[in-house]
Design a protein around this nucleic acid. Sequence first.
DNA 1: GATTGACTCGTACGGCGTACCATGCGACTG
DNA 2: CAGTCGCATGGTACGCCGTACGAGTCAATC
Lengths: 210, 210
Amino acid sequence: MQEPRSEPPLSRERIVATAVELADAQGLDGLTMRRLADRLGSGVMSLYWHVDNKEDVFDLALDSVLEYRGPPQMAESQDWRGQVVHMLEDWRASMLRHPWSASLLPRRALGPNILSRLELLSNILSRAGVADADLNVAIWSLWNYVMGATISRANFDLSDDGRADTQQRLAGLSERYPTIERSRLLLDNDWDGAFRKGLGFLLDGLSPRR
Amino acid sequence: MQEPRSEPPLSRERIVATAVELADAQGLDGLTMRRLADRLGSGVMSLYWHVDNKEDVFDLALDSVLEYRGPPQMAESQDWRGQVVHMLEDWRASMLRHPWSASLLPRRALGPNILSRLELLSNILSRAGVADADLNVAIWSLWNYVMGATISRANFDLSDDGRADTQQRLAGLSERYPTIERSRLLLDNDWDGAFRKGLGFLLDGLSPRR
DNA sequence: GATTGACTCGTACGGCGTACCATGCGACTG
DNA sequence: CAGTCGCATGGTACGCCGTACGAGTCAATC
């Protein structure tokens, strides 16, 4: 007989996976090295054999959330717009599944999964005939749009506790911000639809030989 | 004779201004309540009379960076596109002057300065004839674009120390990410130009009755 | 002179990231 | 078989953090 089912050995992968779980459950502030070690059934300092420091854990957790498996059916379709939309919507969805990831984006290095998504995007646009001079701009514009949309959305998601608060605050300020109030900009928004529609507008602007 | 030039009294405004200075000088991590109090020549706990907690300081510091004084010449020009571009470029510039502000954006409440910028944007677009059904999408798209662009840029700015590092890492990965490498996506970019150009593309897509 | 309210701050507590160092263990060496 | 060496684990301790608590100062008011 062994010990009553001891934990599997530590590993970078297990640490990162558990960190993601923990952040999902307790939020970013709840992710501390001590709690992480607890969840792993190990001592705190053991983590540091596999990981440089806490920043490292953040970097790895962020990147691990951003894997991309490509479009569903056979690749290499002619529909470049569909490919772009699919990848970017998946990007956003992956991050919204782990809302803390949005607040991790600033100041973090580009992990391999981000890079390979950018590589894919470059490829699609390049084959679609976007002029070389516009390519970088196109890539950055799309990236920026997705990041901004995701961060905004995650932001509002998180302040769910404060939604009534927000609503009240806005009601009190409706004279000061009448247009916002009138357009109900911050309330009952169809986020997914708005994301898709805005992405469409952007792609309209970016389309080659328009 | 007085004390050798004692500090002026504490105030919310002075605290916020000093917090901004401190974050500029030492980065976000360098902004601690103790250091802030030191710089103000006061005891740590005195801050808490004027401020709820550290989160409050963050919120106030972020919003204080985002004041907008409007376009240079007389307002109410017919050139709605120019007005939009001016405000958004100023927005981005304001944040880049304080790169830490970008990493504060996620998870923060909308302060009065952000709201009044959104209000202004709504007004301009609405008067420019953007359809009501598209208005929210247009506002969010522009906001998202600006936020994403600012965060990306600030990110790269901050990793200036790691620029050589990044360059090296990319060189080592050029087989894995050939298109990125070829387009020099991450190197010697004209950020300001790319921002302006991408914004132009987006506005092209958003323009009313296209 | 007593009371009050606005304001300041010293002390202390619990929690954090992590440096340092001792330990356990399996594999390889002689 | 004894000795050595690497990988891997984790206990202790340090310095720093945010901030609760409550005592102190001081000017205005009655």
